[in-house]
Design a protein around this nucleic acid. Sequence first.
DNA 1: CGCATTTATATCGCGCGCGATAAATATTTA
DNA 2: TAAATATTTATCGCGCGCGATATAAATGCG
Lengths: 153, 153
Amino acid sequence: MKTLDPANYDHLKLENQLCFPVYAASRLIIRAYQPHLDALGITYPQYLTLMVLWEEETMTVNEIAHKLLLNTNTITPLLKRLEVMKLVSRSRGIDDERKVMISLTDKGRAMREDASAIPFKLVAGLEDKGLTPSMLLNLKQQLHQLIEGMASF
Amino acid sequence: MKTLDPANYDHLKLENQLCFPVYAASRLIIRAYQPHLDALGITYPQYLTLMVLWEEETMTVNEIAHKLLLNTNTITPLLKRLEVMKLVSRSRGIDDERKVMISLTDKGRAMREDASAIPFKLVAGLEDKGLTPSMLLNLKQQLHQLIEGMASF
DNA sequence: CGCATTTATATCGCGCGCGATAAATATTTA
DNA sequence: TAAATATTTATCGCGCGCGATATAAATGCG
């Protein structure tokens, strides 16, 4: 009756947690992206931001933050750095002066081609480690379920 | 033949990535922990560090970093903050003067009881959202596989 | 033994990530 | 219409997370 013993803290062990593997996996994945993103001169959150804009060329700060499940105070300075790099442009909304429209520049649009090969390289690397695409697909779907459950917190 | 079209960037869409759900799930989980950890006055990485020490009361900086898959330059300042809070003590190794031994204080040991209820609360919250324990267990095991594959990068 | 190399920890700089707060614009409501 | 409220973005402070680098102690090797 391990789990009923009040002095038993097994549920507090690192290996019995869900939170730690998610946290660790996230950092390991970002590390794996690093060399490829270094070649492009961008960071991982910047890469995600560009991915959003590659799907829709112009969005407000709020819309981007919402897509990435980030707060606007995280991406506001990030977007300013992307602007300095000439990857995006920023302009106030015409209809609503509060909004800031973020648009891809030609340079930002062009980076999509350079980035295009990265996911394939990473999946190939994982296959070499014995992680099949179907397993990764399964994992992705389960994570989407988890996110859907948690995003409403 | 979508995937053979050179102008097709579907694999760069956020929703088709594995990296983003892992990254987002990690942050959402940390957010869910936040109110409980605020009550204890610690951050999420500090909580993980204490979990390691609750399993083994005295460890070197390197051993803790290795367990958490973090670099020592991340946890060195973190451990100093835990020391200021009187949750751990730091002392040089006797046999090897380079090592810094991190030990739980009575206060740090006592916090385990307060933390003990947190995982149950979170799992209960997830069950309310329709995420069963067996699904979470499955997810955890898959993530362990992914981490094992990636940690060797 | 003397010197190069390795190991363990610490320091520094930068980019997040987010709570708290502020400032400006838009909307609602009295 | 005037005042209260809400929305959108920005600013600030702090704690990571990590690459690059430094420092000191231990180890290896001729």
